[in-house]
Simulated scan of single mutants.
Amino acid sequence: MPRPSNTEERRQQIVSGLLRVMSERGYERASVNEIAKAAGLSPGLVHYHFSDKQEILLVLVRQLAARARERVAKRFERLGADDARGRIDAFLDAFLATGADADTSAVAGWVTISAEAIRQPEVRAAYEQVVRADLEQLEALVAVLVGKRKARALAAGLFAAVQGYFVLSASSPGLVPAGSAANTVKHMAAGLLDTSAAREGA
C-alpha cells in the first residue's frame, strides 16, 4: 500500500485537529489558530491546505460517516447474510456500543455538526446526505423483517433514538449510564419489530 502523501497527512492532521477542538469547545470557538495548535502545525499550513474552516468541517463530515460505516461493515462480517435481526443489532451496536473502536470525540463532533447543519446550508446538505444513506441502510434491514410499508417509520424511530443518545452523551454524559445506549435501543428495536411482525401475522 503506498504511503500517504505529505499533503494528505497534513490535511488529516488538520481535520483531526478540528475534531479535537470542536469536541471540547464547539465549532464557533474552533479558530484556525486553535485548530493549528491541536494539529501541531502553523496557522499558515491550515490556510494552505484548506480555503476556510467550513471546508475542513465538510471533510470531517465525510470522514466521520466513513468511520461509522466501517464499524457497521466489521460487525456485519461476523454474521450470516440471512441473519436479519442480528444485522439490525449490529447496525445499532456500531453506532452506540462502547468498545475498542468507540470514539467519544467523534460523537461530540457529530452532535456539533448536526447543530451547524441548522445554520449552514452547505453543512446541512452534507449532513442530510450522510443521514439519508445511513437511514436507508437501516430501513432496508428492517424491511426484511416487517416489509417495506412499515420499515420507514420503524427505522426512522430507531435512528432518532440513536441520534438522541448522541446528543445526551455529548451534552450531559452523566445522564446516560455507561454502556447502556446500545442495549436499550436494541431492546426497543426488538419490541417494535416483534409487535409489528405480530400485527402483520394477525
Rank of each mutant, 00 (worst) to 15 (best):
T112C: 12
R75N: 12
H47C: 08
L154E: 00
I14Y: 09
A182N: 07
V162G: 12
T184F: 12
R152C: 02
W110E: 09
G86I: 01
L168T: 08
K74P: 01
L92A: 13
G80L: 06
R78P: 01
G179M: 01
F50S: 09
N6Q: 13
V59S: 08
V46M: 10
S105Q: 12
G157R: 13
L138S: 08
Y127T: 05
A202T: 05
L41W: 10
V162L: 14
L135T: 12
D89W: 01
G80F: 04
E77K: 14
L79E: 12
F95T: 01
W110H: 13
R149N: 15
A140G: 14
A117E: 08
P173G: 04
S171H: 01
S172P: 01
S16H: 09
Q12C: 03
K186Y: 02
R71C: 03
P177M: 04
K186A: 07
F91N: 06
F76N: 06
L60T: 02
A106L: 03
R20P: 00
P4L: 11
P43D: 03
T184V: 14
P121G: 00
K148L: 02
P4W: 09
P177N: 03
T184N: 11
L192M: 14
K186E: 09
A170K: 10
G99A: 06
E128V: 03
R152Y: 12
Q120R: 15
F50A: 10
A115H: 13
L154A: 04
Y27Q: 10
I88L: 04
A156W: 10
L193Y: 02
E77V: 14
P173E: 02
E116Y: 09
G40R: 09
T112D: 15
R25G: 03
N33C: 00
G17S: 12
V15I: 15
R69K: 14
A108N: 15
L138N: 07
K148M: 02
F50K: 10
L79F: 14
K150Y: 05
R152A: 14
D52T: 07
R199G: 01
G44P: 05
A102V: 03
A202P: 00
A81Q: 15
T184G: 07
E139G: 12
S172G: 04
G191M: 07
K37P: 03
R87N: 06
G174I: 00
H49A: 15
L193S: 07
A30P: 08
A68R: 07
G191Q: 06
D103W: 07
A160S: 13
E9W: 01
R124W: 10
D194E: 13
K148P: 01
R71I: 02
